Simulated assay, not measured.
Amino acid sequence: MSGGVVQLRDEGSQKQVLIAGAVAGLVSRFVIAPLDVIKIRLQLQIHSLSDPLSIRNVNGPIYKGTLGTLKQILREEGLTGLWKGNIPAEALYLTYGAVQFSAYKYTSSLLSSMPAPYQLPDPVNSFISGALAGAGATTGTYPLDLLRTRFAAQGRDRVYSSIMASIRDVATTEGPKGFFRGLGAGVSQIVPYMGLFFASYESLKPFLANMAIPLPFGTSDAAAGVIASVLAKTAVYPLDTTRKRLQVQGPTRSRYVHRNIPVYKGVVRTIGHIWKREGMRGMYRGLTVSLLKAAPASAVTMWTYEQAMAVLLRSEDKLKDE
């Protein structure tokens, strides 16, 4: 195994990985929050602008592209509208980042320690470790993801007045299952996404580090994170749209900024419904802003993680020298 390929999984203790992952998730979330709100608004918009018949009797905004959505949110809801759902989202990214990197390090180290006949190639190791880490982190933090989506879907008329109010409302009217609406789509999405992301990242990082030409985004870590994220995100995007549509189901479905969201039940039936009514365009609505979001998010996440880990390792060395 080459040193570059195994660097991420070998460096730092479990505690250091946990701290660095949490910091990376927290910083990344704040940077891309506005793009996340725009993406969610576009994903929940069921009508196509190219079909005049589809926008009849629509009670809610009609967003036109990334820039148009940005302008409309600023005009109707102000600057704070771009950070709706940021509190549960920060908690989500903080927890998710810590669990993800910690689980990835533990799983990949475990697989790397297998006896020679059963030892996996680096790309396979990275794929399995990333997929399992993503599935575990997604399941554990899913209620925060659902609340983030619901707050981002609110327009000027509030559905929930606060985080605590939203938790009480979901628990009372929908029960424990209400916090996990769309989890099947989330896990189905994150397993291939994180597997592809980490496999691509680990493969690209040493290759880009040895390139003689200057890299965009500053470092090979950031550049590899951007490319890996774009590839993985595009592959699984229909499942992300499906997850968002399922997350806003329930008794509050008709109170969000888009008041004509259909009733969906189950991942497969939701995919079939979107494909039949909205076609390929409906499955990939908001992909442009999603990729715009994914690139800086992954770049910031991986760069911050590497920098935070470097600081922790230097601090540990200083303590040892004293």
Results as ranks from 00 to 15, higher is better:
P176E: 13
L26R: 03
R9W: 13
L313Y: 04
Q14N: 12
H273I: 05
F198G: 02
G134M: 03
H273S: 12
H273F: 04
P192N: 03
M1I: 03
G182H: 01
K177L: 09
G155W: 08
V311S: 10
I274N: 07
V37P: 00
T172F: 10
R41P: 00
E202F: 07
G266A: 01
I46T: 15
R41T: 02
T234C: 11
G286E: 04
F30C: 11
P52W: 14
G195A: 06
A235P: 00
L92E: 13
S200A: 08
M280N: 00
A224F: 04
L291T: 00
F198Q: 15
I163C: 04
F197T: 08
L111D: 08
R314V: 00
S220H: 11
E76D: 15
R259H: 06
I274Y: 14
M280H: 02
F101S: 10
G218F: 03
V31S: 07
F151R: 05
Q45T: 04
P88F: 03
D51M: 09
N86V: 08
W303R: 15
G195Y: 02
G68W: 08
D51L: 15
S188V: 04
T288I: 12
M211N: 08
M164H: 08
P123I: 04
G218W: 05
R281Q: 02
Y237D: 01
G78N: 14
L49G: 13
W83L: 14
T173N: 09
A294F: 00
I261W: 12
D36H: 06
G272H: 07
L42H: 04
V31K: 01
Q7M: 12
Q189C: 05
A228M: 06
T242A: 15
V289C: 03
L92G: 04
Y256K: 10
K265N: 13
T80A: 14
A297F: 15
G182W: 03
A33F: 05
S203R: 08
T270H: 04
S229L: 02
A131S: 11
L132G: 01
S112C: 11
P34A: 10
I32V: 09
P296T: 00
N260L: 03
V263W: 08
F198H: 10
F101P: 02
E306K: 15
I46G: 12
K233N: 01
G65V: 06
S298P: 04
V5I: 10
I73Q: 10
E306I: 09
R243W: 03
E77T: 04
G85F: 01
E77P: 06
M194G: 00
E278L: 07
E76Y: 01
L313M: 13
L70F: 11
G21Y: 08
A22Y: 07
S48N: 13
R285F: 06
K318L: 09
G266N: 03
P214W: 07
V6T: 13
F207Y: 15
R255D: 10
N210S: 14
G155E: 09
M1W: 13
V31I: 10
W303D: 08
G134F: 07
R148T: 14
Y93D: 00
G78E: 09
W303Y: 10
N59C: 14
D240G: 01
G97E: 08
L208M: 11
G134C: 02
R277N: 13
E202G: 02
R255T: 11
K276M: 05
